[in-house]
């Protein structure tokens, strides 16, 4: 059985309208993949950076996968939240980043978007705050019902990943 080691960091974020941010992340993978060791999801700290500084999370990831099928190569799903001075959390965006197949070190940028609405609902939203959320996070990384959604551009999550593979050449797979 082939193995994939994924380790690195959710480094931080930039380009979001407010700066007191945190994110939750999860690894999404197909049925032929098994997470042998390491956390498959997590939540970062809340960072309110100094004025000239990007949001820094430095949240380490370390995952060890056993692979039976190349189908369903893992992705990382992110949900970025803004935490205000009263400790209220507001969803700022969804993002998905594909874990690279090639071994080595990779710096990735994951663009995020937020579900949006038009008309009277956005007016309410501007008065009372809060944001729209998806009923199911699956819509972010699948094609189902995507055409019904309306989204707006938010910022970017920065990820640094190192990939080490073992045993793929025994099955004739080149990476």
């Amino acid at each position: 059985m082939a193995e994939v080691f994924v380790f690195g960091q959710v480094r931080g974020a930039s380009g979001f309208p407010q700066r007191s941010l945190f994110c939750t992340w999860e690894a999404i993978h197909g049925a032929g993949w098994r997470l042998l060791r390491g956390a498959g999801d997590g939540r970062t700290h809340v960072d309110a950076p100094a004025p000239d500084h990007d949001v820094t999370w430095a949240h380490p990831l370390d995952m060890h996968f056993a692979v039976q099928s190349m189908q369903g190569w893992p992705k990382l799903g992110f949900k970025v939240y803004h935490q205000d001075d009263f400790g209220r959390n507001e969803l700022y965006g969804y993002g998905v980043c594909h874990i690279p197949m090639s071994p080595g070190s990779h710096t990735l940028e994951c663009a995020c978007c937020q579900p949006s609405t038009s008309g009277i609902e956005s007016f309410y939203q501007s008065l009372v705050g809060g944001s729209l959320q998806l009923k199911s996070d699956d819509a972010v990384h699948t094609q189902v019902d995507r055409f019904k959604l309306k989204t707006k551009t938010m910022g970017t999550v920065h990820v640094q990943l190192n990939i080490v593979t073992r045993g793929f050449e025994a099955y004739g797979i080149e990476m």
Partner: peptide, 9 residues
């Protein structure tokens, strides 16, 4: 980490 609030600098 989720209970921590930081200021990066």
């Amino acid at each position: 980490r989720e209970v921590v609030r930081v200021r990066s600098h």
